[in-house]
Nucleic acid binder design. Structure first.
Length: 274
DNA sequence: TTGTGTTTTATTGCCTCC
DNA sequence: GGAGGCAATAAAACACAA
């Protein structure tokens, strides 16, 4: 903001120094009736008036005055570079803008609150999209799981049929092989005979229901807590679409950084820089 | 014009830090 | 204890639909 943006407007009763371009002043004047302008203090006036407590007593101090767009612009620029206000800068800004230091401080306070609200909104959206993605990945894993289960069923049936035809002499009941003891396992109400060593294998691609992500009771938290899935090392499904880590990437993402001046190394949440 | 919702400015009270 | 921060809130200013 250049100093030449100040100018004197004698047409207004208080003879104030305005911190506005003529168009903005015209706009402001049009907002105020003659009666109002005689009673009310316009929201941009001289430094002297702003520092004069008597002025407030004489001119209905309870009325709020909006800052001009240029004042707001400069404050915004200042906020971008540093969102906290040390006393020296507060005084400088106040002088430059024709405001009371207290007004500048209040503006920064409110601006920080607004920024925090927006940041909370952004964080919420990020978390929500991560959650949605996680859910969608889980659904696709479930589908894959069911596909593989039916494939196993069909293969086991074929194997049994083959064993029936090759091992069974005519008119004889086949003797059970103790090395190939088959155990019935309930998988979605399908009884599949699976060898013990297969059941105990940790390398199975097929997820049991117990391995699914657990949506725990999150108590006070809006977001459900998602327990980690215990993948086996480096497994892939048949088409390679699902492998370790690929399903749940970006679940925890860093939030955007606050305005400058809070340490560039800092991250994770607006309250980190307070 | 008026009612209503949103935004902005300002105050209050409490807390933390020096 | 004073200064400064934040949350909560009030109230004026503003936007906008009916």
């Amino acid at each position: 903001m250049e100093s030449n943006s100040f100018f004197f407007d004698p047409s207004l009763s208080h003879g104030n120094m305005f911190f506005l371009n003529p168009a903005a002043v015209q706009e402001a004047k049009s907002m105020m009736t003659t009666e109002e302008s005689s009673k009310r203090r316009p929201f941009f006036c001289s430094h002297e008036d702003l520092y004069d407590d008597d002025y407030y007593d004489d001119h209905t101090p309870d009325k709020k005055r909006r800052l001009t767009s240029q004042q707001v612009h400069l404050l915004e620029k200042s906020f971008e570079t540093e969102n906290k206000l040390e006393p020296e800068r507060k005084t400088q800004l106040a002088n430059k803008l024709g405001l009371q230091p207290r007004q500048v401080a209040v503006w920064f306070q409110n601006r920080r609150a607004r920024w925090k609200t927006k940041q909370l909104e952004r964080d919420f959206n990020l978390l929500k999209s991560s959650y949605d993605q996680l859910l969608s990945n889980y659904d696709s894993i479930l589908k894959d799981n069911h596909l593989l289960r039916s494939e196993v069923t069909s293969l086991v049936e074929k194997l049994q049929a083959k064993e029936d035809t090759t091992n069974k002499p005519p008119g004889q009941v086949p003797e059970a092989n103790p090395q190939q003891q088959l155990h019935p396992v309930n998988m979605n109400q399908i009884e599949l005979p699976i060898k013990t060593e297969d059941r105990l294998s940790s390398g199975s691609t097929v997820l049991d229901e117990d391995d699914a992500p657990q949506l725990l009771d999150s108590c006070n938290s809006y977001f459900p807590i998602i327990a980690p899935i215990h993948h086996s090392e480096g497994h892939n499904n048949r088409n390679g679409s699902v492998n370790d880590r690929s399903c749940f990437v970006d679940v925890f993402v860093p939030t955007t950084s606050p305005p400058h001046g809070h340490g560039h190394g800092e991250s994770l949440g607006f309250w980190g820089w307070t």
